[in-house]
Amino acid sequence: MQKSAWRFFPLAIVVFLLTVVAVDGGMIFAAVHSFPGAADDHAFDTGNKYNEILENAARQAKLGWQLNVKVVSNDLEVTLTDQNGEVLPAASVEAVATHPVGPAQPTRFAFTPQGSRYVARSALPTPGQWDLGLTASVGDIKYIATRRVVVQ
C-alpha cells in the first residue's frame, strides 16, 4: 500500500502558522522598538514641514549650545552654555511645562538670571513628571529644546 502525501498536511499547517507567528512577532518587535514615543495631533502638517524641522535641528546643532535643567526644591534651574562651555549670560529663557500623560495642565513661566544659572521659583505646581518646552533667546538667535523633569 502506498503512503499518502496528505499525511504531511497537519505538519504543513503547523509550520505555516509558526511562520506567520514569527513574522508577526518580528513586525511587532520592530514597531515597538522604532516608535519614537511622540504623538502629534497635527501629524499631516508636521510631516509636510519635515524638511523645515530638519533644517532647524541642523541650525541648532551647529550652534553647539547645551541646555541643562535641574529641579532644586521645586525651583527650576537652567544652565545654558555655548559650544566652548561658556555660560551665555545675556539670554532670555522661557518655558511651558505640561504633563506627558493625562491632563496636560500647561504652565508658563520665565526664568530670571542668577549668576551662571537661570531660575524659575516654585515653577511646577504639582509633583510628578513634566515635559518642559524651553526657548532660550540671545539676540535674534533662538534655541528650542524639550526636557523631562521629575518633581518630588
Rank of each mutant, 00 (worst) to 15 (best):
H33N: 14
N84Q: 15
Q2W: 09
H99A: 12
N68P: 05
F29G: 13
R148W: 11
N68M: 03
K142F: 00
P89M: 03
F8L: 14
K3Y: 05
N48A: 04
Y118H: 05
V149H: 09
A95Q: 03
R148F: 11
L76T: 03
I53S: 12
L63I: 03
P100W: 07
A38G: 13
G25N: 07
R121V: 10
A123Q: 08
F111S: 01
S92N: 14
R121M: 03
G25C: 07
V23P: 02
Q105V: 13
Q105H: 15
D75K: 04
M27C: 03
A91P: 04
G37H: 08
I13L: 07
L18V: 08
Y118V: 00
V119F: 05
G115L: 00
V23R: 02
R117Y: 01
V149E: 06
S116H: 06
G37I: 13
I144C: 00
V87C: 12
P113D: 00
L63W: 00
K62A: 13
A5H: 03
A12D: 04
R7H: 10
E86Y: 11
E55H: 00
Y118G: 00
N74G: 00
N48W: 08
V96T: 07
I13F: 04
S73N: 15
A91G: 05
V72H: 02
L11V: 11
R7D: 09
R108A: 10
D140A: 09
A97M: 10
P103A: 13
L132R: 10
R147S: 14
G47N: 11
T81N: 05
P106M: 01
Q114Y: 00
E52I: 01
N56M: 12
V78Y: 04
Q129S: 10
G85W: 05
T112I: 02
K142T: 08
A95K: 05
D40K: 14
A97G: 09
N74A: 06
E52S: 09
L67I: 13
P106R: 05
L134N: 02
P100T: 06
V14M: 06
H99R: 15
G102K: 12
V72F: 03
W6V: 11
F109N: 07
R147P: 01
Q66D: 12
L17P: 06
G102S: 11
V72T: 07
L67T: 04
L124W: 09
G85H: 02
S92L: 13
S34H: 07
D131S: 14
Q66Y: 05
S122R: 15
L134F: 06
E86V: 15
S34T: 10
P106F: 02
Q152K: 15
W6C: 11
A22C: 06
Q114R: 00
G139H: 03
R7S: 14
V119E: 06
S34F: 01
K49E: 15
T126Y: 12
Y50N: 03
A110F: 12
S4N: 09
V138E: 11
P103Q: 13
P89V: 00
V71H: 04
Y143R: 01
R148G: 03
M1S: 08
